[in-house]
Write a protein that binds this DNA or RNA. Structure first.
Length: 292
DNA sequence: ACCCAGGCGGGCG
DNA sequence: CGCCCGCATGGG
């Protein structure tokens, strides 16, 4: 059973809570413009500018796009918000206990977004030892400073595209520091160079999860946690389970009486418990844990 | 003022 | 290998 159908000016969607999805710290939402009070979200997708207008509830919402470029916007949106996912099956498989059931109840409709691999890489390099608000600030500065103009059919500038790795090789560590990247500026300069001249992130799409993660971790500034975030939100590897401070803290509190557990142990715990849907489970644990 | 943030690389034992 | 430390910066 599909979770979306085409409507005249957009889509009719079930199980999509745009607020929780946008607010739960995912790459798209680090630089998209939105006014959730008015149900507005706009971003530059793979098929150009998308302006979406939401009405309804998380159980059943209507999404309306500009009539111009409607089919491209629909296509982009379906991929971006993973509307083909079988949410009933996902909920059923990750609702393993009271804590998970409660998290799902609180944030039902929160989706994992699928983003461009390089965008995701840059966003999560910036995310390390940082907070969500400041990640957004820095990423927005990168788009503003280094992105190129996106124009509509009349030549009018409607937004800025996310800067490619190649584009960033035209700039230096000092330029990235000026955007507030701090000590991560060095990682970014190296990563941009690496992803332009050594690794083709788009060819890594053919890898399975293990091979992908191994390749990603050769990039400067990409360790275990960031690699899992990129695998999950940049490549759609739903079995990835990123463990940040919040997820670690929450797992230990809920399942291990607050006792310290090693990252490797927690990865195995998640794999056994959530399996192929670990990534979706992680997003609920992360957001519930942060808001406890 | 002080503390923390979706961690990582490097150095040391 | 595992452990520990420093790290830029802005908001609470």
């Amino acid at each position: 059973m599909d979770y979306y159908t085409f409507s005249k000016y957009g889509l009719q969607v079930r199980e999509l809570d745009i607020r929780h999805t946008v607010e739960s710290a995912q790459p798209l939402t680090f630089y998209a413009d939105y006014d959730l009070g008015k149900g507005l979200l706009s971003y530059v997708g793979g098929n150009g500018q998308v302006n979406a207008n939401f009405t309804g509830t998380s159980k059943n919402c209507a999404v309306r796009f500009d009539s111009r470029g409607l089919s491209a916007a629909r296509k982009d949106f379906v991929e971006r918000f993973r509307l083909k996912d079988d949410m009933a099956d996902i909920y059923e498989n990750i609702a393993t206990d009271d804590f998970m059931r409660s998290a799902i109840k609180n944030y039902r409709g929160m989706r994992i977004t699928l983003n461009d691999p390089w965008e995701t890489t840059l966003c999560f390099i910036v995310s390390q030892y940082n907070n969500v608000k400041r990640i957004r600030l820095i990423i927005k500065r990168f788009v503003k400073e280094f992105g190129s103009d996106v124009v509509d059919s009349n030549g009018k500038v409607v937004g800025k595209s996310f800067p490619t790795s190649e584009r960033l090789t035209e700039f230096s560590e000092a330029d990235f520091r000026r955007c507030g990247a701090g000590f991560r500026a060095k990682y970014i300069a190296k990563a941009a160079e690496c992803c332009t001249n050594n690794i083709d992130l788009y060819k890594l799409r053919k890898n399975d999860y293990d091979g992908l993660k191994e390749n990603l971790m050769t990039i400067s500034g990409v360790g275990d946690k960031v690699a899992d975030c990129i695998a999950l939100m940049g490549y759609g590897k739903m079995e990835a389970f990123p463990i940040d401070v919040w997820v670690k803290r929450t797992l230990e509190k809920v399942y291990f009486k607050g006792k310290d557990k090693k990252i490797g142990y927690l990865h195995k715990f998640a794999e056994d418990r959530f399996g192929a849907y670990s990534g979706q489970a992680q997003q609920y644990i992360f957001w519930q844990g942060r808001n406890l």
